[in-house]
Design a protein around this nucleic acid. Sequence first.
DNA 1: AATCGGCCCTGAAACGATTCAGGCGCCTGT
DNA 2: ACAGGCGCCTGAATCGTTTCAGGGCCGATT
Lengths: 339, 339
Amino acid sequence: MPPTSIRDVAKLAGVSVGTVSNVLNRPEGVSQDALTRVSHAIEQLGYVRNDAARQLRAGVSSSVGFVVLDGQNPFFNEVVRGAEDEASKHGIAILHGNTDEDAGREGMYLDLFEEQRVRGVLISPYGDIVRRLERLKARGIAAVLVDRFSGNGRFSSVSVDNVAGGRMAVEHLIETGRRRIAFVGGPFNLRQVSDRLAGARVAAESSGERVDIEVLPVEALTVDEGVVAGRRILDRPKRDRPDAIFAANDLIALGLLQALVVSRQVLIPDEIALLGFDDIPFAAAAAVPLSSMRQPSRVIGQTALRILLEETNDPELIPRQTVYLPELVVRQSTVKDAG
Amino acid sequence: MPPTSIRDVAKLAGVSVGTVSNVLNRPEGVSQDALTRVSHAIEQLGYVRNDAARQLRAGVSSSVGFVVLDGQNPFFNEVVRGAEDEASKHGIAILHGNTDEDAGREGMYLDLFEEQRVRGVLISPYGDIVRRLERLKARGIAAVLVDRFSGNGRFSSVSVDNVAGGRMAVEHLIETGRRRIAFVGGPFNLRQVSDRLAGARVAAESSGERVDIEVLPVEALTVDEGVVAGRRILDRPKRDRPDAIFAANDLIALGLLQALVVSRQVLIPDEIALLGFDDIPFAAAAAVPLSSMRQPSRVIGQTALRILLEETNDPELIPRQTVYLPELVVRQSTVKDAG
DNA sequence: AATCGGCCCTGAAACGATTCAGGCGCCTGT
DNA sequence: ACAGGCGCCTGAATCGTTTCAGGGCCGATT
């Protein structure tokens, strides 16, 4: 079965290839007669446009790449989902790449997407890739940073104010009477992590109370790393333990929770309060329902894609930083009788 | 900045375009001299192959579509991740589409992927799409069913034996002394769901005991639906409640758990044992660590992609059904003093 | 010395769409 | 009757790659 081309359609409809193309792309300038004849021919042959040829000639791609920091994190899945919904409205497909906090994979996917001449790239960056993105831009491939404020203002970004989020988080812990607060997170070259910590410090310093922030670094933002950190806390004598933990994200928090709850040595929130970040769907279903800083994840994805398309339509647009404020969701891991 | 083409490279290196193409695709048949000159030219110009042109002429696409049933389900994310790892080894990118159990979206993504002339499609089907896939096949686009046994043997598939899984699950519940078992799941046109139920019934009937299987249907395999079902169970007088629940997947199970635990009316596993399916990473971190039927999710994705590539290389290959056996993971939601 | 084969290279044709300059036919106004 | 304009269509050129028939060169064989 030879795949049918626009030429086959033209022959069957008794028109020229140009007319078929017009039917496909600018039907308003085609006569009723031609329009129906071509439509029938398309139907009859089961013709489907070859996007490679279209892209080659028209120079317009109908796919967008999304380089995701952590595919196992439900937060990012929500973001992707938001972008997908928006993309599908425009007949655009999303090329998907997981980096899992690995700069090598990040580069590989950018290479791949450059070969594909994607319309643009959404990326939650891990390494320092501004130069890489500059190069793509020079090639006409726009990029929008997701979940990360753009350092130098050369690219648009859609993110949450992580400093404010960290501040709000720790303010909540202080308000509920905590003074010895541990921040569990890492790696610190992730801007999200260091910003949240910075916010935490701001809250501690401006509280007017004596508040300690102790930093417990972990290797990655995963449940497993959270468990490891939890065990390390359990190893300490009771009096040396913090009275609250602010986890850099919910995966860490769930890991901590698991370690602490399983041990049966620690009461949450009585002895240690626990607060996460992202408010993933599983946070509410945890052993002790998890308080968390909610990010508007779907909206982030949707907005990022929308901005990307706007920029590819008009490359002269000035990059803009879109920042949402996270929202505190209080559950029983910080307040015993919370809803 | 005009994008550089293979012709620019050829000119700079002082060779013909054919030679450049050979360097790119069959370097073994090119002299050392030409090879280094071309490589330098590529480097210097920052040349990147245009995949659209390549695909147009060679007829070979370097992307694969993956139509996913439920992007919010960590199980599918693991499967995608497995496929991605395998794909990246072959320089192949994955086009991602979420259907969220919606036949319309499913069709839309298949259309999109057909326009792209993807190399093949991985799909965890929702609706009845065999005809659709037949058509793709006729066009030279192979398909592999994921997480779903192929009904008619016309396509390869990679899945888990859901009937056996359902049987093993209920056998475990019976062994631990349960007799009034509820199956919470739906919709039943999802083969995964009906197979798991069928397996549950087999176990009940062949147990030699008097075992009831009550079916509590839900609209979708989500945490929210699990919560709803949990509330419905709580509405009953205590004596009419089941003594074990087998949930069609872990999302449902986590929802049930959340509803039951929050109410503080039910002790798990004492009064009601709870068993899920998939063993997603969050199952272990739940309020009561969740027993579950583990699927080898990454391996499923990896295998599916591998089979897809084999079939696109040799379209004469006979479809084959790859089936893994799920594995029972016992935690405290079914056995009080489990690990 | 002539022939042959092997190795490499060349450059035009082809893939399937879009674009655009050009042309045809018809209506309108004077 | 004729110029001009409008609406619609045509078909060749083009995008950047791969492929492939053809050919040059050189050393080995007869």
